[in-house]
Amino acid sequence: MAIVNVSDQSFVNEVEGQGTVVVDFWAPWCGPCKMLAPILEELSGELGDSVKIAKLNVDENPETASRFGVMSIPTLIFFKDGQPVDKVVGLNSKESLKNIVAKHQ
């Protein structure tokens, strides 16, 4: 499944539904965010349709970032059936992220 970009307006429709969704809270000026992007691309390719990956630019969408208490980026929040179930802050390895996703599927 391709990585989708979400906004304050589209967040509920794209994220708060059924299944497992990983939301990457990021910004274009963030170095670690840029390093995380290819890891998420690989993860998306490996996990296919079993998980949805969404990216939310915190500079353009402050309401959603504030709603989920995002204070540092990159922050990944893992949702299961619309509810946040896990959160990691900072750059993580693909294996670490796969393990977190597997825990919530």
Results as ranks from 00 to 15, higher is better:
A2E: 15
I3D: 06
I3H: 06
N5Y: 13
V6H: 10
S7I: 03
S7E: 08
Q9E: 15
V12S: 14
N13F: 10
N13L: 12
E16M: 15
G19S: 13
T20Y: 02
V21T: 15
V21G: 12
V22F: 00
V22R: 01
V23I: 05
V23G: 09
D24Y: 04
F25T: 02
P28C: 03
P28A: 14
P32W: 09
C33H: 06
C33E: 03
K34Q: 15
K34N: 13
M35I: 09
M35T: 14
L36T: 06
A37C: 05
P38I: 10
P38A: 11
I39S: 12
L40N: 04
E41C: 01
E41D: 15
E42F: 05
L43R: 00
L43K: 03
S44L: 00
G45E: 05
E46F: 06
E46V: 08
L47Q: 05
L47P: 02
V51H: 03
K52N: 01
I53W: 03
I53F: 02
K55Y: 08
K55Q: 14
L56M: 11
N57P: 06
P62W: 01
E63N: 15
E63S: 15
A65Y: 01
F68H: 04
G69R: 12
G69L: 10
V70I: 03
S72G: 07
I73E: 04
P74A: 09
P74D: 11
L76S: 05
I77K: 02
F78G: 03
F78Q: 04
F79W: 11
K80D: 10
D81A: 06
D81V: 07
Q83F: 12
Q83L: 14
V85Y: 01
K87H: 09
V88N: 04
V88C: 00
V89C: 12
G90R: 03
N92F: 12
S93Y: 04
L97W: 01
K98P: 06
A102Q: 14
A102H: 13
K103I: 02
Q105V: 09
Q105T: 13
